[in-house]
Design a protein around this nucleic acid. Structure first.
Length: 264
DNA sequence: CGTGGCTCCTGGCGGC
DNA sequence: TGCCGCCAGGAGCCAC
């Protein structure tokens, strides 16, 4: 499976579906931890003990995180960071570069976690609920209801882009889909204090953008031509207006927006 | 509370 | 051509 760049909610959901179809119910024979930095507050021994001889029986996603359930009160937690991805390989297929963790099944197939930049983390949790609490994650961007979203966002005073990137406010949006949602809603990323009508429109666009991205498996070549996402480059032009895109930094991230139809 | 800066990390690219 | 140095980005942490 092609790895998506910069995993956010749609990439995580795409990968979850991939893992759901190829990695459940297979007996795990061995786990090979190539780089301990990838582990999220657990020792290699704990991970080995939890996985070896066991099997995954369910997959879940919340925000950008993926969970693979081992039993009723133990799940593997996956955070892809910036460049993390899984490849399911048959016995004969060769391992990709930057492999950090290898899960070897009894039938000889392997699940390979690769992550060049090593911002990703793999860990264990007893429940998704407690994990969400521990990591202080807000509502999942795809499943959140309008009222919850309005309650949280209308209380805050920061720029809208910074709020969308804050995982404790909304879980799942990263730099690219935050820009995309604002673009589709016609809102500039550096705006504060949006009125309710604007926030409601943004809420709808967030959902549209995320479900569109999931429907095309977050494949960069398949985004609608009306999307900003493939034009986020210096000198890029707005797909609606043909105007040169502006580039500013908010919260340490690069934001692209159309100065013509995105309003403050 | 908000924000900006720094850190982790390395592939990729611009500039010389 | 080759190499240096900077940048990208998620998120935690710290200082103001």
């Amino acid at each position: 499976m092609k790895s998506a760049s910069m995993p956010e909610l749609p990439e995580a959901e795409t990968l979850r579906r991939y893992l759901e179809t190829n990695s459940l119910r297979k007996v795990i024979e061995r786990i090979d931890i190539r780089n301990e930095r990838i582990l999220d507050n657990i020792f290699p021994k704990q991970l080995k003990k939890s996985l070896e001889g066991s099997r995954f029986f369910l997959s879940e996603r919340y925000g950008k995180r993926i969970f693979l359930g081992l039993n009723d009160d133990l799940l593997l937690t996956i955070h892809l960071g910036m460049s993390g991805w899984f490849d399911y390989l048959s016995k004969r297929e060769s391992e990709p570069s930057h492999t950090r963790v290898l899960i070897i099944f009894a039938d000889g197939s392997r699940l390979v976690y690769r992550d060049p930049r090593m911002f990703g983390r793999i860990g264990l949790t007893n429940s998704i609920k407690s994990f969400i609490r521990e990591k202080n994650l807000g509502p999942d961007a795809l499943k959140m209801d309008l009222q919850t979203y309005l309650n949280v966002i209308s209380k805050r005073k920061g720029t809208i882009k910074a709020m969308l990137l804050d995982q404790s406010i909304v879980a799942g949006l990263g730099n690219l889909y935050a820009d995309e949602s604002l673009f589709q809603a016609g809102i500039r990323p550096d705006v504060r204090g949006l009125d309710e009508a604007r926030l409601v429109l943004l809420f709808k666009r967030i959902k549209d953008v995320l479900s569109t991205a999931i429907s095309i498996k977050a494949d960069f070549g398949l985004f609608p031509v009306t999307f900003l996402i493939t034009r986020r480059i210096v000198g890029g032009r707005c797909p609606m207006d043909g105007v040169s895109l502006e580039r500013i930094r908010i919260g340490g991230r690069t934001s692209y927006y159309c100065p013509y139809h995105q309003k403050s």
